[in-house]
Write a protein that binds this DNA or RNA. Structure first.
Lengths: 349, 349
DNA sequence: GCATCCCGGCAATACGAATTAGCGATGGGA
DNA sequence: TCCCATCGCTAATTCGTATTGCCGGGATGC
């Protein structure tokens, strides 16, 4: 241990350094805070003596004590309602995390994953008795969905946070609607654009397969489609046999299906082939999201590319805005690129 | 804000609670630390009054101040020499992180990613002037390689850490060799096992393609092969044309090649096919690692499965051991499963 | 009736670093 | 010789929470 002069618990403090250098703790602190103000107040000889001891001992300031005083820690929190590193959908979060990490690095911030949040009633919760939110200066919320009550409380208590994914306004008792800081993908705009394209290709009977309600991203997709095709046929797909769903769609004379989940499009594609139908000649299929996993469809699915990395980066930017109170609008919608694919074609009938 | 009685900087403290409840800060603290000792010292009426105020204000203790006293924070650090979420090799780290996260969650610990570590001389470094290591109770080191001097300093200064991946002992001036806490994959054992299999299949002239030096994992692989096949032919592969490498191997009469990097095996496979050779009939190929990415070889490469998730989990276990001073040996080698594949076959000639 | 004990609560202190106010010594000017 | 400014450094305080020791009053024991 090189004879480190630990006084009490093993960790070496500024007082230890001070003792060894024959100065006060204040002086050690002044030497360390290297600004022109303080530096000028210390004689070069003293300064050097202190630095020498610091070098010998390898002392570094305890960031905790420092943070307690400063009231901020250069730490950004990341909270997810599922595991941050899920096993199943191998890397849904990965691009988001890449963007967050890159931006945090450029800011010189560390990233704290709130893995300690206990699971109550089958879900992780931000607010629990030993809430560690304050360890971070602000927090990025990641996940397909955020419980309304948690969101409301975050806004009401004035926490610095940002959601990755658009979130509806929150109701703060009586006053103006609480806008939730967020960086989302512009599902509505992208879906509208695809819808216009489908219409231009001659499609008249268009369907939406998926819930279309609940989560904001689902509402936005259905809404984007409705804005262009008011009389869209809305069919739920959850837990439904693809062949069944397909039959219902065909019976209604549908020629193009917009699927909330790309996976549904893939399933419908399979069902269509099984019926001897051709895609897109007999039925056009569109996935309103990014195809995940390696199971690429052949021919390529017409779908969206969600700018996930960019969303992560910008989420951190917005979070910093929130912290500094810089900008006034803390909501951003990023455009989705369209993946042309080959499953959206001209109506043939 | 519900008229929260913030005194100074916005955050609400135990003193605020105390004022509102007409008690002292001590009492608030005692009410919060819910152990039998302290609880008995507070009258139920007082206790309830304090709890009421706490509920109204939504107060939660500042984990920072708490940590400063306790000298530990329930935070485990993760340090990587590259980005934690790299863009290129999509998810080399992902399985490790999964294991680390799962174990941390079971321990109720948060995870801190040291993204603030600045890049000096082209590489991230743990030790720099504003070292934030002490934010965490201990630290998991992730990455293919760890600079020796950083490792040495970690050991010398007695930091609690663990390396994912075996690391050689470190030289602490004069005293006994400093064993580095680590959880590694047993490359040596697995390679030996594969070598025995190759020998049993009739192979006599076996080559090792790769550096075989430097990083521990490379040394271990070559070592494991040498233990079974002392007269192995060692050919470097870095930056070399696969066809060129193949020619050299064939000229030496090699019938089985053990490749440090599965990617090299894939490249050699391509070169062999181009020469009209069959695998494994004319040449057996073994990858001494996990094939990464979706570019699976056809037929399947005989290689290893690195228990990355398990390594992550056990790394955290070892770290906890180190922290508590529980066990005495902090090195673990985990067995690698063999992926049979079809590129290692009987020698035909 | 006096010593003792327990109950319920509080003041004081510690954790480690940063900041403010101020103290003693020195030097220069009048 | 006296006064004041400057230099170089330190004592005291702060951040928010946990812990220790103690105090006053009422009940209990002998």
């Amino acid at each position: 241990m090189a004879g480190a002069p630990t006084n009490h618990g093993g960790r070496i403090t500024q007082r230890d350094i001070a003792r060894r250098a024959g100065v006060s703790q204040t002086t050690v602190s002044l030497v360390l805070t290297n600004n022109s103000e303080a530096a000028s107040r210390i004689a070069p000889a003293t300064r050097e003596r202190v630095l020498q001891v610091i070098r010998e001992t390898g002392y570094v300031a305890d960031p905790l004590a420092r943070s307690l005083l400063r009231q901020h820690n250069q730490i950004l929190g990341i909270f997810t309602y599922e595991l941050v590193f899920p096993a199943g959908s191998a890397d849904f979060y990965h691009p988001f995390l890449q963007g967050i990490e890159a931006c945090a690095e450029s800011l010189g911030c560390d990233l704290l994953l709130f893995t300690s949040a206990p699971v109550t009633d089958g879900a992780r919760r931000i607010f629990h008795e030993n809430n560690r939110l304050r360890l971070a200066d602000g927090c990025v919320l990641l996940g397909r969905e955020t419980p309304r009550e948690e969101l409301t409380r975050l806004v009401r208590e004035g926490h610095a946070f940002v959601s990755v994914g658009r979130r509806d306004d929150v109701d703060i008792d009586g006053t103006a609607p609480g806008r939730v800081p967020c960086v989302g993908a512009d599902y509505a705009g992208a879906t509208s654009e695809l819808a216009r394209r489908a219409v231009a290709l001659g499609h008249r009977r268009i369907a939406y397969a998926g819930s279309g309600e609940g989560v904001e991203s689902a509402v936005d997709r259905l809404g984007g489609l409705r804005a262009v095709v008011p009389d869209v046929l809305h069919e739920r797909s959850a837990g439904r046999d693809p062949a069944d769903l397909l039959a219902a769609l065909l019976a209604a004379g549908v020629t193009a299906v917009f699927c909330e989940l790309p996976a549904d499009a893939v399933a419908l594609h399979g069902a269509a082939l099984a019926c001897g139908l051709r895609v897109p000649e007999d039925l056009s299929l569109v996935g309103l999201g990014e195809e995940d996993g390696p199971g690429r469809l052949e021919p390529a699915l017409t779908c969206l590319r969600i700018p996930r990395r960019e969303m992560g980066w910008q989420a951190v930017e917005v979070l910093v805005d929130v912290l500094h109170g810089t900008s006034d609008d803390h909501q951003r919608l990023l455009p989705c690129a369209m993946v042309p694919g080959q499953t959206l074609g001209p109506r043939q009938i």
